[in-house]
Every structure is written in C-alpha cells, then in structure tokens.
Design a protein around this nucleic acid. Structure first.
Lengths: 161, 161
DNA sequence: GGCTCAAGTGTTATGAGATAACATCACGTG
DNA sequence: CACGTGATGTTATCTCATAACACTTGAGCC
C-alpha cells in the first residue's frame, strides 16, 4: 500500500465480511437504479474495498485476475467509469487514483483528505463544496461537478513521523 | 483554444503589452525571491499568458519554439514545476492542464472555476480553502496543499448555449 | 421460443501525460 | 580562475487513458 516515508503504516482495508456486505449493498443500489452490477464492475469495486485507500488504475489492472493474470486496461477503466457514474467510487484527480465511496448515497459530490505519507484517503463529503458553490454563483458560473482534495498528513502519520 | 461545444467563444489572452508587463513583474518577483527567471521559464510563462486559459503541457511543448519547432518534454515540465513552485502558474489536476497565476502573490493556495464549454479558467483564491482546512483540522489532518476545482459553464456560455 | 436491439465485454492498438537518468553548460563564490 | 550548485539538453522510458471494432449477453416484445 502507500509507502512514501520511513515509518510503518497500519493496514486499512475492510475484512472479508465487511466487503461482502458492501458489495451486496452496492448491488442492491444498482438494481434499484436500473443499473447492472456485472462481473468486472463487481470485481473492481471489490479490489477498491479491499485496498481501503486510493489505488492506481494499473494496480487494479494488475490485481484483477484471481489467478494473477492482469486485466486489459479498458476492462478496468470502463468499470471505474461506471462506479464513478453511480457514486460507488471516486477518482482522486491530484494523484490519478481511485477509491471506493464511503458514503451510502447515490451519485454525489465528494471531497477528500489524502495522507501523502500512508496513502490514507478520507471522504469528507459536504462542507466546503458549499463555499465553492458560493464562489461560483458570485462569478456567474453554473457548477456541475467539483474536485476538492486536501493533501497532508493523517493523525497517525503526524505522530509517527 | 477551448472548443467543446457549438457556439463561438471570445479570445481570452492578454495583448502584447500586458504580457510584457506581466513577464517583467514575474521576473522582478523571482529576483526578489532569489530565483532565476531563465529563458525556458520565461518562454513557458509567456505561452501561458498568451493563452489566457488552461493549456495542456503538450500544447506548450508544441508551441514552444519560435520557429514552430517543438521543445523536448522535460524542458517544459521543468519550467512548469518552477512556475508552480514560485506561484506564477498552477496545475489544474482535473483536466491535466496549466494556467498562469492571476494574483500577484507569491506561492499560495488557489481554487478554480473552469468552463467546460469555452475552457475559461477563473482563479478564485481563498474562500473554500478555509472550509477544507476546517474539515482537515476536525479530522486531525495537517494540510499542506489543496486542489479545489469547480467545473461548469461560465456566464458567457450559459447565455450562448 | 425466437427476434431484436441496446448495453456490456474482449481485444488490439495507440494516444496523451509525465519523469528517470546522465551529460553538459552557466553562473555566483571563494 | 577553480569550484560547486543549479539549470539545461537529450535520450529513453514509464504511467495513465481511450479509440475502434468484433462479439456476447440479456430484457422486452411478438
């Protein structure tokens, strides 16, 4: 997982039971929205949930096959596109990585805190989206989507470093 | 320049005199900070100012030579790194593009409104940076840099479309 | 059941964005 | 003017992402 500094980092992924429940919930949400949770989509979401942090697309590609065989890039990118569209995952533009959504909502704006030390990502949904919305309104802009990402050190790494 | 829709867009770049003044001011700032405004750095900043909107790195590379000869990628990427470090330009992560800074400040956090229609970018410095900072503090994060980008339609394109 | 068509997937190839590594050059300092 | 640091030139390569096209699957319809 993330290793950009010298101290040890805790694992952050969910355990098998939690992943199973999250996948079932995601599938239910898809059915409800008239979307299909197909095999590659489920597999990519599973990999994101296992990681519990932001993951690079090509890491997902490498881990995709249960037998260690990599996927073809479009397989994973198409799944990511779907997961993003349905709000089950998000892209973190500042590091070109992807993360499972941690809120049970459907498609929604998101903001993130990213630890540059251990790679942890924390989704902090609403607060500052509103401030940006105000700035946009003041400037006459009609806002459609936002990218809000803060980089720094998480509590654990502030202590450890 | 930006053309993602069917209606016409105004040119946004500065005129020659304004660019000259902006370059002189940037150079003065560099000297003041003990940095060197070298030829490739000045050239890349000039290209950004001429564009007046976010530009892709490889467009800068293509436009770099006065005789139409492209630069080598590291030439431009190194200049961009310097301009970003000194606060003379910013990277817009959500579209992998770069833009000249529009505030006379030294290195500083920035936020952007980006028109997906005409490509206009507006720097709206502080407002929601503070909200994100608050969220970070609440979560125990020590924030070091932020990426805050809003996408939508600028006033002109809202009318034109 | 069998048609049909839209959505999804597999596959190949390529486009776009960014950096590593190393040789050489320019400049301020002692 | 020797020296060392920072900047540049150059080659090669790496990472990120998508275009294009053939094939498959599944829900709705008759």
């Amino acid at each position: 997982m993330g290793s950009h500094c010298d101290h040890a980092h805790d694992e952050t992924g969910l355990d098998a039971g939690e992943i199973g429940r999250a996948l079932a919930a995601a599938e239910a949400r898809c059915v409800q929205q008239g979307e299909r949770m197909t095999a590659p989509r489920r597999r990519v979401l599973e990999l994101l949930l296992q990681a519990g942090e932001a993951v690079k697309a090509y890491d997902l590609i490498a881990r995709y096959g249960l037998d260690g065989v990599a996927a073809k890039p479009p397989t994973v990118y198409r799944a990511l596109e779907f997961l993003e569209k349905t709000g089950l995952a998000h892209r973190i533009a500042s590091i070109s990585a992807y993360v499972a959504c941690s809120v049970g909502d459907r498609a929604h704006a998101a903001a993130f805190l990213i630890c540059d030390c251990c790679g942890a990502t924390e989704e902090v949904t609403p607060p500052e989206g509103e401030a940006l919305q105000q700035a946009a309104t003041a400037a006459g802009y009609a806002l459609e989507r936002t990218t809000i990402e803060g980089h720094g050190r998480c509590p654990a790494c502030r202590v450890a470093a």
